[in-house]
């Protein structure tokens, strides 16, 4: 992915030298031409076309914001409610992510999800220990949210 970006910038600079104009406009034009070339030649790279990764990152950021707002709504409801009928607890979540930064992003996302907070990560990085605000009714819903998060992160690193 990095190779493709560097190559694209290189093509943009070549375009600037060819057209002999050194402005942002010609850099941008060259960048678009490089994008087209890489799209045509995408078979010869080992990774997929890198705009897909960029799109996956944007989607992940949007998920981040949506979850932050939803979790605030959930917390607000618990705090304002007159009687405290929550059942907190710690459960273990198996994860298939392997790289360190992926686990970091996943646990940040989980911490910002409604009612969950990462307490610990097992030494072999296979289990995340998560403190949940209200275990009984969220447990399965949370699992499904995790699946969407994990999928989104795997999509970025593919």
């Amino acid at each position: 992915m990095l190779l493709q970006i560097v190559l694209n910038i290189f093509i943009a600079f070549s375009w600037m030298f060819i057209s002999n104009s050194y402005e942002f406009g010609s850099f941008f034009g060259g960048y678009l031409i490089g994008l087209l070339l890489i799209l045509v030649l995408r078979r010869s790279f080992s990774h997929r076309f890198y705009l897909l990764n960029v799109w996956a990152v944007i989607k992940l950021i949007l998920i981040f914001f949506r979850e932050l707002i939803l979790s605030n709504y959930a917390i607000m409801k618990v705090v304002v409610k007159p009687n405290l009928d929550i059942k907190p607890g710690i459960f273990a979540l198996p994860t298939e992510l392997e790289k360190d930064w992926e686990i970091m992003v996943l646990s940040n996302l989980i911490t910002l999800t409604p009612g969950t907070l990462v307490v610990d990560i097992s030494d072999d990085r296979k289990l995340l220990y998560i403190h949940a605000m209200d275990l009984q009714d969220i447990d399965e819903a949370i699992e499904s949210i995790k699946n969407t998060f994990e999928k989104a992160i795997l999509e970025v690193s593919r």
Partner: peptide, 8 residues
Amino acid sequence: EKSTQDDL
């Protein structure tokens, strides 16, 4: 004390 479960 009302916590239900503690896997950790």
